[in-house]
Amino acid sequence: MNVEAVLTALLAAAILSSTALLLAAVGEAISERAGLLNLGIEGVMLISSLAAFWLTLESGSTALGLLGGGAAGLLCGIVFGLLATIGRADQVVLGLGTTLAGGGGSAFLFREIYGSDQPLLAQGQGRPFQGLLDWLPVIGPAVADQRWFIYVAWLLVFGAQFVVARTTFGLRIRAAGESPFGLEAVGGSVIRMRVAAAAIAGTLSGLGGACVSVVELGFFSPGITAGAGFLAIALAMLGRLSPVRILFGTLAFGLLTGLDTGLQIAGVDVRPEFLAMLPYLGIVIALVAFGRGTRLPRALGKPYTGIAGSR
């Protein structure tokens, strides 16, 4: 096997495996911009992952399955948003509860539906740009030969960046996290903006979870996202809540994750457990290096209690 083919395969795998993470991290970033710290992403991803898998298996359509996963995420997001705003829930506790309930609930439903079966998805997935960039070594085929949903995910990320940075709606979302009273003073509604942000975050994480089972792996098993939801929170913080920076962060993470395969192919003898630590240590080191000056939205994590309830 030549070096170029190995590098291409590694980069392609990194792009594929980081897509779910990217969607969830951008969702979390939008949620945090509005002042909601959502630690429940992992649970939302797992529930949506199962929903998408089930729908794909039942309908035979990958696209329909992915939409179903997004819809399940949307629903979870709205519930989270309502409980966190109108319910005035403690966001950390609510998030941890969502993670437990989503993880337990998806495992429970999976066993109820399929028993001890382990069905696989067999749908082919189009690769619309295959071969278009073959003239560019390594990067060309790795970028252009992906399954179609990867490009949809990138479009969503750039769309999210545009909405958050350049529209009035995005400004209001940021105001809900930065200066809730200011938003109310100009006639906006903090609760409405936060629920909207939670809904967008839920949809994106739902699509991320769906991407894991339907696009990436073709099966579901309990705990299949393997902590991607928590990684998304870390990567959102590392990317300082900016979708484009998060894109690069998740790609770097995907490359670090693929490093063990790469080194094994290259014949370097390193314990795989040692390499498995690298991405997580990488995040902590990157947080120390770049995250020290990170300024999070001022009202992040604080329930909005209205003008009367302010201290």
Partner: peptide
Amino acid sequence: LPASFFTLFEGILLMVFAVLHWRPWAR
């Protein structure tokens, strides 16, 4: 009843507590 049901239960419990944190009379 699968073991995962109890994980679900603990999650629901935590979510209920998160909301219960809000006590209208506290203020």
